[in-house]
């Protein structure tokens, strides 16, 4: 008499299990690839060189002190320096092309918040936070890279650790969501 196979040796179950594992792995890899890899920028902007030379973050992203968004520099800001300095480089020819055509540089924003989060830079700067606390060490990046694991728990963890006496205010839903 032919012995019945145990359930985990049934070919249907095995194929289904392999499919489920493949789908889960594909989802994880795809999710990481789509959210954790830096998007392609029109100009491979070398942050490391600019920050390394001592340029202030706020010189190119002055919106951080004024409004919710830090802003990305336009052709006037870039060309203001690069008209004079360092003209010979393949990336700067791209920039010169944008300036010649009088086009805005189509930067791809990397540090973005979902629409239901109302993040403002100014309270964080006033609290004495460094840019690198959230945006990573820009001296080691060329184009800006998305930072890993920046979810609500991460926000609240920092709120709790840096200002425990203001926990009521900093854990209030209305501080970020309205």
């Amino acid at each position: 008499m032919k012995q019945k196979k145990p359930w985990w040796k049934q070919p249907g179950i095995q194929i289904a299990a392999v499919l489920v594992v493949l789908i889960v792995i594909g989802g994880i890899v795809g999710g990481i690839f789509l959210t954790q890899t830096p998007p392609e920028q029109p100009i491979a902007f070398p942050h490391d060189r600019h920050v390394g030379m001592g340029a202030s973050c706020l010189y190119c992203h002055p919106g951080a002190t004024l409004g919710p968004s830090a802003g990305l520099p336009g052709i006037e800001k870039c060309w203001g320096c690069h008209q004079q300095v360092q003209k010979q480089s393949p990336e700067l020819t791209i920039l010169a092309g944008f300036v010649e055509r009088n086009e805005a540089i189509p930067w791809v924003p990397v540090a973005i918040q979902p629409e239901f989060v109302h993040f403002k830079h100014s309270p964080h700067l006033n609290a004495g936070l460094e840019c690198s606390t959230c945006h990573g060490d820009l001296t080691k990046m060329t184009v800006a890279e998305p930072q890993k694991g920046q979810n609500m728990g991460w926000c609240l963890q920092c709120h709790k650790n840096t200002a425990p006496e203001q926990w009521t205010k900093l854990s209030d839903c209305a501080t970020c969501h309205y």
Binding site: F116, D172, C173, A174, T175, H177
Partner: peptide
């Protein structure tokens, strides 16, 4: 629908 401890108002967290 939660109560805001800081502002003492009723909040609606849409998400």
């Amino acid at each position: 629908a939660v109560h805001s401890e800081e502002e003492q108002i009723n909040l609606q967290v849409y998400i």
